[in-house]
């Protein structure tokens, strides 16, 4: 039978990073992601973000994460809106 292989596909961006000291490896984030960008290989360990370039940046992974701060999620640098102090 044909064997499937997963290959990490590089992107210039890293939408999702895990804090391994906080992540409990439940993989709820991977299951909530509609784009299926993550693969959870081993329970207890964070999933692998296999397809970072496919991320839609919706934040569903963080919304479903049971541990605050376990996922660091951020827009690509070029998409981070600038803000300044009010002038009045």
């Amino acid at each position: 039978m044909m064997e499937f292989k997963a290959e990490f596909i590089q992107s210039s961006n890293h939408p999702i990073r895990f804090d391994e000291t906080k992540c409990i490896g439940c993989h709820r984030c991977a299951e909530a992601c509609q784009v299926d960008v993550m693969i959870g290989f081993e329970k207890g360990k964070p999933p692998v973000v296999m397809y970072p370039g496919e991320c839609w940046y919706c934040g569903a992974c963080v919304m479903e994460c049971p541990v605050e701060g376990a996922i660091r999620f951020r827009h690509p640098l070029m998409n981070q809106t600038k803000f300044v102090e009010v002038k009045q």
Binding site: W56, C58, G59, M63, F73, R74, T81, F83, V84, E85
Partner: peptide, 27 residues
């Protein structure tokens, strides 16, 4: 709104944005 709770509200708050003190740029 879709794609705002974590990516916008959460991320900008984390970066220190306070709507009483800051104004957000328009492009």
């Amino acid at each position: 709104e879709g794609k705002t709770k974590i990516p916008v509200y959460g991320n900008l708050t984390e970066r220190g944005f306070d709507p009483e003190k800051h104004m957000l740029q328009s492009y």
